[in-house]
Design a protein around this nucleic acid. Structure first.
Lengths: 329, 329
DNA sequence: TTGAAAGCGCTAACAG
DNA sequence: CTGTTAGCGCTTTCAA
């Protein structure tokens, strides 16, 4: 329960000056082996561990070797995979990662960003919540690098890594139309989220391209949880004229749709969902999905961030990764 | 791209002393409103943001309000849910979280712990990798609080939160025996992981209790990935005398077993797995599981850690959470 | 090869 | 109410 010993303590025990301890701790070779050995003995004896925060303070202008990562919801496997990839890349550069979930709450996101920047992170990877991100400008102005992932940030032009949500949704819904479906329902999260907007736009665009009218009663926006999606899906099949297919705009919606539509002896309704998920191929019938690669998104974002930290000052870039329609019939 | 302005800069602009700026920044009410307003104007003008690392340095003996979290693999939904719960609890206490994955590598775990402690985290939540954790003693001695989760740490007596793995495995396998199974295969990860040991022990114990002999060729240890588990499962059914059931010792094994055993028109083999997973109930046949509550594990661990950080010095506690056998026939 | 002095950005403890 | 002084643990700079 003793406090942390300091270099001064080590110096006293080893009978040298504080500077000599500093040199040994930092592996400088200008210390006489004998002296270094005495210092190292003292270090072990006292259990000395360098205080990196104090170190960073003095080494001004130096990187803190810390990244901040703000995802929407870490418990969601999509964001978990993304976060894991960011951490992997960070590890290779000897960086450590501060993490937090915004839970789609802009205020919470701001608090996390503020807390991370107060700790002087070198860069931020952010899955932006809905709402204006002008507040980030002051951090950018102070030199903090920012890369947005998965979604575009409103009111801010930074590097970002996204997938082609609209084109993906068009492909998925077109496929359903090709297969003869006409009453295709839509299940989606709140439309203030950029990806949700794009995917819904793709849904509408694909229908319009074939002259199929949008049927408001087949369209459910604002679903936040698997349970809500399941309830919405179950309600759809109880209609006099149920849909023959459902387009689910993310993994939570898809799994919810499976909950609501599979089992119970009903003839299953075809589901196509954005985001791949484990065992989608083992359901009966299997679920066709638009697969993204969250690990690739995270890794790309982290690499982009490191190139900025290393001094790249070229104009903001947008990297658009493709989605892959995984047809499972 | 300007550097971060300091309190000194703000003071100069506002025409006050540095201390007055400090007082305003920290919301002390002893500053005359007019002066405070001038300072706040200067803060906005310069885009000043308090440097919390410098702050912590001076406020000695104070908490850094930072937690370190080391999981095995953040991309695994189980650990992601656990991590998310830790972060939730931390948020409520105004703490932020440093995170890292050990990928079952003790060396990597040590590096993460060292990096986190060098940043002077107040406490650590660790999913310990296999191997001796005596190295943690020096951090404990320095006052860092540690709670282990999911697994016991070899050679270290700290607070920990685990589930009753052995009893759970006994319950699961006994259930299979009750249903008339006798040739029950086992698929598991490397036995140097504590949970794996315990679950295998439970498997063996349940068989022994009924006088069913262990059949070495039905037992596959050391499987690390879903693919390896799938291959092992597929190999089992190609035997002359295939097992009639499989006990999968974690979610990766279970999903791999589903990969290897479901579909293809074969009569499916009964699977019982440790860890629940999404849509286990929607497979045909559905998969019976031993459900854990990773969020509860993480939240409990974080709460335990905070009680230690708050000064609780009672002897180390072990919290054992129950598993729940979710029978899906 | 080693050490002394100065100071990173901030706050505690006092003065005024 | 405001300012001055000292110093957190460390590194930079310069001197011995």
């Amino acid at each position: 329960m003793s406090q942390h010993p300091t270099m001064r303590d080590v110096a006293a025990v080893a009978g040298v000056s504080l500077m000599t301890v500093s040199r040994v701790v930092n592996g400088e070779s200008t210390v006489q082996p004998e002296t270094a050995a005495r210092v190292e003995r003292a270090i072990r004896q006292l259990g000395y561990q360098r205080n990196d925060t104090a170190r960073q303070l003095r080494r001004k202008g130096q990187a803190t070797q810390t990244l901040g990562l703000v995802v929407d919801d870490l418990a969601n496997p999509f964001f978990a995979a993304l976060a894991s990839a960011v951490e992997d890349v960070a590890r290779q550069r000897q960086y450590i990662v501060l993490i937090g979930s915004s839970n789609s709450d802009l205020q919470r996101e701001r608090e996390l960003v503020a807390a991370f920047c107060a700790r002087r992170v070198d860069g931020l990877v952010i899955v932006p919540a809905a709402g204006s991100h002008r507040f980030l400008r002051e951090y950018l102005a102070a030199g903090t690098k920012v890369v947005c992932v998965d979604r575009r940030a409103d009111g801010l032009d930074t590097d970002r890594v996204v997938v082609d949500n609209r084109q993906g949704a068009v492909a998925a819904v077109s496929r359903l139309l090709d297969d003869g479906h006409e009453r295709i329902a839509y299940l989606g999260d709140h439309r203030d989220i950029w990806t949700v907007q794009e995917r819904y736009a793709g849904y509408a665009q694909a229908l319009a391209a074939r002259g199929v009218p949008l049927v408001p009663s087949l369209i459910k926006h604002g679903l936040k949880t698997r349970q809500e999606a399941a309830a919405a899906a179950a309600a759809l099949v109880r209609r006099r004229l149920p849909p023959t297919a459902v387009f689910a705009s993310n993994d939570v919606m898809t799994v919810g749709a499976v909950d609501g539509l599979y089992g119970g002896g009903r003839p299953p309704i075809t589901i196509v969902g954005f985001d791949d998920f484990a065992l989608a191929d083992k359901l009966s019938p299997p679920v066709t999905v638009l697969a993204q690669d969250p690990a690739a998104i995270g890794a790309t974002a982290a690499q982009l961030l490191f190139s900025r930290i290393s001094g790249d000052t070229s104009p903001p870039r947008e990297v658009v990764l493709a989605t892959r329609l995984v047809v499972r019939a």
